[in-house]
Amino acid sequence: MGHKRILVPMDGSENSMQAAEWAINLAQACEAELEFLYVVNLKGELLRPTVLDRHTSILEDAIDLGKRLLDTALDLVPISIKARGHCVSGDADETILKEVQALSCDMIVMGSRGIGAIHAAILGSVSGYILEHAKCPVVMIKAEQKEK
């Protein structure tokens, strides 16, 4: 029954940290395994001309940041649960879909930015793309909102 392996894409946002915590809870309940994923995407960074001459160190920085993020998430996981961290480079949306398959995950838990459909269509929201294209169930987590 239930889910054997849950993919948790992380991007360092508050939403993705909450998604990680939520996924850990679910993994405990379902006795599932966790795969945390950080996608390094330097496209945006490299478009800035000033950084071109030192892009190798930027790549290293990005990988470093990703690994630290993954460690933060892995530190929250109780010993009883199997969990791994993956730092992969590429386009966030395509890489996430690829890794779901590669790691044979049967569920994705991720943070959503909670932006409207029009914004998402224009800005190309990663969560929107995943929702649309993933073959498995997707859980969208938003950081707890303050009461208005």
């Binding site: 939520w22 959503s112 459909a117 929702l131 073959k135 169930p137 997707v138 859980v139 969208m140 707890e144």
Partner: peptide, 16 residues
């Protein structure tokens, strides 16, 4: 489902 995802305060699981 789109509106629910955007506006719900709790986690939303979308099944296809």
């Amino acid at each position: 489902s789109q509106q629910i995802i955007e506006q719900a305060a709790c986690p939303v699981l979308v099944v296809k």
